[in-house]
């Protein structure tokens, strides 16, 4: 079995901790040339994965941030009618007005198709778009080509991009959509995993400090009634805040004091619940 064809091709990147399971799924999706759909609660690193893949496989990354108002054609190409209209009126540009192709700009999916090298195409938060958008997009990614109606030309992918799709929603996407992708749900990292994540972000943190922070963090996540639980991003920012505070030492955490709650909780109701629980539970 040569290296090229092994499940362990993608091994994570410098700032991304990858679990074994996910690595396999990424590699098999690349091998099967199928889009990979990632779900999971915020802060589990769905978006970061695409960055990590791009970094580790040394491919350029193209990000399509999906918006609810977006039409599929926006992601493929744009026909800049206004500029053309303007050119036809004033005629002071070097573009040829009768040559429509000069007014076609590629959208994100289009860019991934026409790129000279293989790219990683991240389609972020697909659940924001409506069902038609999702289904039609998958058709295009399936066939790896689309038509530009205005100039009656078909754009074919020079290189099949590695497609990563993320979704925050708990609700299922449509069946035809799901049928065309591989699927993985990223669970929230367990403490061991979280430790390695912290280690890649902070190089010289004391073991004791990491222990205390992780323990407090998972304790804080367990409170009932919290609407937005602190996630990995919050933990890292919180540790950053603690490090920056000259008055802070670990014994505070052991005593049950939690400074900088505002870094961890982003909603005032959550913060109140947390503050109440902290005093009670230690």
């Amino acid at each position: 079995m040569n290296q090229e064809n092994s499940l362990n091709k993608f091994r994570g990147a410098s700032r991304y901790v990858l679990d074994n399971e996910l690595a396999k799924i990424v590699n098999v999706s690349i091998a099967l040339e199928m889009p990979l759909l990632l779900k999971g609660e915020p802060g589990t690193g769905k978006t970061m994965l695409a960055y990590a893949i791009a970094e580790s496989l040394k491919m350029p990354l193209i990000v399509l941030n999906v918006k609810s108002s977006m039409k599929l054609v926006d992601a493929l190409y744009q026909y800049d009618t206004l500029t053309r209209l303007n050119d036809s009126r004033f005629g002071d540009s070097d573009r040829n007005v009768s040559h429509i192709e000069e007014y076609i700009k590629m959208g994100k999916i289009g860019q991934a198709f026409v790129a000279d090298v293989r790219t990683v195409l991240l389609i972020d938060e697909i659940d924001k778009a409506d069902t038609d958008f999702q289904d039609d997009m998958l058709d295009i990614l399936d066939q790896m080509q689309f038509d530009i109606i205005e100039i009656d030309k078909t754009v074919r992918a020079k290189n099949r991009p590695v497609v990563i799709i993320t979704s925050n929603a708990k609700k299922d996407l449509s069946d035809p959509f799901l049928g065309r992708c591989n699927f993985h749900h990223i669970a929230f990292p367990d403490p061991t995993m979280m430790r390695s994540i912290i280690n890649v972000h902070f190089s010289n943190l004391q073991e004791k400090m990491i222990d205390a922070c992780i323990e407090t963090f998972y304790h804080l996540r367990r409170f009932d009634g919290i609407e937005k639980k602190p996630a990995t991003r919050e933990l890292i920012n919180w540790i950053r805040a603690l490090k920056a505070d000259p008055d802070f030492n670990i014994s505070k955490l052991h005593r049950g004091e939690v400074p900088y709650l505002g870094v961890l909780y982003k909603k005032s109701s959550d913060m109140q619940i947390a503050a109440r629980n902290i005093t009670r539970s230690f």
Partner: peptide, 10 residues
Amino acid sequence: TVARSVLVKS
């Protein structure tokens, strides 16, 4: 792992 990712979509 692979079978889950390919077969199970939720």
